[in-house]
Design a protein around this nucleic acid. Structure first.
Lengths: 359, 359
DNA sequence: GTGAAAGCGCTAACAA
DNA sequence: TTGTTAGCGCTTTCAC
């Protein structure tokens, strides 16, 4: 042992062993060493020889140079994740899910933030491709999304997370918004609400549009009349937009006793609008959010919200992508993951059952 | 134009032009083309030739293959970021700061999550090194941190963010905790508080230890007696730990009218402990947090907290690292960035001035 | 079962 | 100023 265990462990070693050195030390040709070191080609080589190579490789602390391998194979054992903005709290758990699954299968994860700028999205994808990325996870999908559609047409392995595009043949892993909305609506219905409003998210995103559609469907399922004036759509997923939208409804005198908000930020905006009017939540109007954003148990009143399995969405997307890489011919598959209703009362406690304010 | 503008733009092109092709098309040797294409060697080549090469490269949509370049140069134009956990809300803004600065100078950012497991940290660093990463940003530093110290000793370019190690010669970009604590303490002092407790964070982390030291120093500066029993340290940055620590102080009957918490989660734990005892905040006990975690304006009561310039910490760390790469001989430098006190009253409004509850 | 040879795409000596 | 040559470390034909 030349290097001390510590410096070996902490990789202070300046020189990294190469395949050629392993081969020389083991008394074989580099090609043979390569075959022995790669599980898929190990059977081509004599068992004893293979063992010797493996042993030498371990002694020398050999690790293959992924750059050289990539250059030769035009593959990289890595995938690219395209996000709008990592500081949006819905994305980190998704990224962790992706990363944890990929690490287990020896893949690395690249992240790029686009701030929803198509230019940056394009250049991010380009820089991934230059690096021989093997597949993509997109969290930036709009319903109409030329870049993603072109990439899919060019048979580039990709999976959408959280949001979908209109075209049904593009694989995606999302929460089942229909179920989520119906959990929220049934909860409100059971509390006695019959006039329910929906403050929807941006309609060019699947999450915004699908939740709105599900809202209409739920009205029908519950036998409630569909009053278009009880629906408003926000331009952005923001507190401000939610505040403005609910204020508009209140200004118009639209009658309702509960709100299903497109997400938690919009729901917080509803809180703001109500507070300004002196309306209490949930006594005057109940509000249900979407996503179970961190600290929603701490806001006032503690928010009842539909929890999305974000980590699992990321993990499943990574698994789906790995499947696609292994079997490119396989038919594209999409996953809908079940959300959960998190019911909270004024003390922030989580309940499985119905909410406090019956009508 | 063989490819349509759209497919060129959206990179549906299957074949990517190589340097050899550009050279051939421009009627020069690949080496010349390489010189023309690289800004630093362009002066070696005839201006007219260089222009021709550049034009051809543009026509062919040539982009250099970073893999091949890395293999040749043993550099990668990328840096690695080592984090405990991306889902901790303090890290995404730091990462964005790093990424935004690096993108502007043509560098990419790799992220690895370690969950504070030294094994994963080690293997993450190794995988970075295999990829010829040029520098590291560490957000996982403990005061005693053999891996980081060894790497620094081996002259590997690295910068610590948010936390520091004991050894002063290792470059870091952190918030100025002494100033942060003194902002909090002076605020409380001006409100009339004279018996102030500190629920500190983990003492093996610089953020935990330095804030505690600053707390003691502030007592002295304000001419207040130092009562050791008014200080408790949490094992983790968690609501639970904060709850337990404050409960212990209350159980002991330690007298205090205000708390400086090690961070916002610990402060939330203090809220919990007080609520259980029927103590009101801020009427009975005032609490100040640290970090200005998202949604702390929405908790009840809205949290007064020391805001850390997280994005700027990341951005400055990236700039520092780039400086170090350009001039490895330069003396290591560390930055302390100024925090801001965010004073909130019960309506969630932000104030520059003193808090509502005077004594 | 193993070795020889070629080459992925690029850059950097060295030579002209 | 430009071309030649070599090689980064690896995988993968093709012979033997």
């Amino acid at each position: 042992m030349g290097a001390s265990p510590v410096s070996a462990r902490y990789c202070a070693r300046v020189h990294r062993a190469t395949l050629k050195e392993v081969a020389k030390e083991a008394g074989v040709h580099p090609a043979t060493a390569s075959r022995a070191l790669n599980a898929s080609t190990r059977s081509m080589v004599n068992t004893a020889t293979a063992e010797r190579v493996l042993r030498v490789a371990k002694e020398l602390g050999y690790t293959p140079n992924p750059i050289a391998r990539s250059l030769k194979t035009a593959r990289s054992s890595s995938v690219g994740v395209v996000l709008p903005d990592l500081t949006n709290p819905i994305f980190p758990p998704i990224v962790r899910g992706i990363e944890d699954v990929l690490r287990d299968v020896g893949y690395s994860t690249w992240i790029v933030n686009t701030d929803n700028d198509p230019e940056r999205e394009s250049s991010g994808v380009d820089s991934f491709r230059q690096r021989s990325i093997e597949g993509f996870v997109f969290a930036t999908a709009r319903l109409s999304h030329p870049l993603i559609e072109e990439m899919a047409d060019a048979s580039m392995p990709l999976v959408l997370v959280n949001r979908r595009v209109s075209r049904i043949d593009i694989p995606s892993v999302t929460a089942d918004d229909a179920t989520g909305v119906s959990l929220a609506m049934n909860h409100l219905y059971e509390l006695g609400h019959r006039q329910i409003a929906h403050i929807a998210g941006p309609q060019e995103l699947s999450t915004g549009l699908f939740r709105k559609r599900a809202f209409r469907q739920c009205l029908e399922d519950l036998g409630l009349p569909h009053e278009p004036e009880r629906i408003a759509a926000c331009e952005t997923w923001s507190e401000d937009a939610g505040d403005r939208a609910l204020t508009t409804l209140l200004d118009k005198g639209v009658p309702f006793t509960a709100v299903v908000a497109g997400n938690d930020l919009i729901a917080l905006g509803c809180y703001d609008a109500m507070k300004r009017r002196g309306l209490r939540c949930p006594e005057d109007i109940s509000v249900v959010g979407f996503n179970d954003t961190p600290f929603m148990d701490k806001v006032s009143p503690a928010m009842t919200t539909v929890r999305i399995p974000q980590y699992e969405i990321g993990a499943e997307a990574a698994r789906l992508l790995m499947e696609m890489l292994q079997d490119p011919a396989r038919h594209p598959r999409s996953l809908l993951l079940p959300p959960t209703l998190i019911v909270r009362d004024s003390t922030g406690t989580v309940h499985a059952g119905p909410h406090a304010t019956r009508r």
